[in-house]
């Protein structure tokens, strides 16, 4: 019954806003970040570091709004707000 994250996220209903509620404050801070923890602890794999572009990409449309990255990034380099009212995830069981 092992499943990847895509299949898991597929079980959640999203209403995606056209602007991101998650913003990397400074990509240079990410470049210097030795741990890149956000690439691991996010339960929806929202963050991914790209070596060539020297940037963290943010798949905000997959975010399940748990808040871990808000307090988990060691340099608080993520600006975190809630999606606009009614947008984002809607669980069917919870």
């Amino acid at each position: 019954m092992s499943t990847g994250v895509e299949e898991r996220l597929y079980s959640i209903r999203y209403k995606t806003d056209d602007k991101s509620h998650l913003i990397i404050k400074d990509q240079d801070v990410c470049a210097r970040c030795t741990t890149k923890e956000c690439n691991f602890f996010c339960p929806a794999d929202v963050y991914l570091w790209h070596d060539e572009e020297k940037a963290t990409s943010v798949a905000y449309e997959n975010c399940i709004e748990c808040g871990t990255c808000r307090l988990g990034c060691p340099t608080y380099n993520i600006e975190w707000v809630y999606p606009t009212g009614g947008y984002g995830i809607t669980y069917k069981m919870g």
């Binding site: 019954m1 499943t3 996220l9 079980s11 959640i12 399940i64 069981m93």
Partner: peptide, 11 residues
């Protein structure tokens, strides 16, 4: 034999 109906996460 169970079917995963929903994934979720919360602090």
């Amino acid at each position: 034999g169970g079917e995963v109906k929903e994934y979720s996460g919360h602090l």
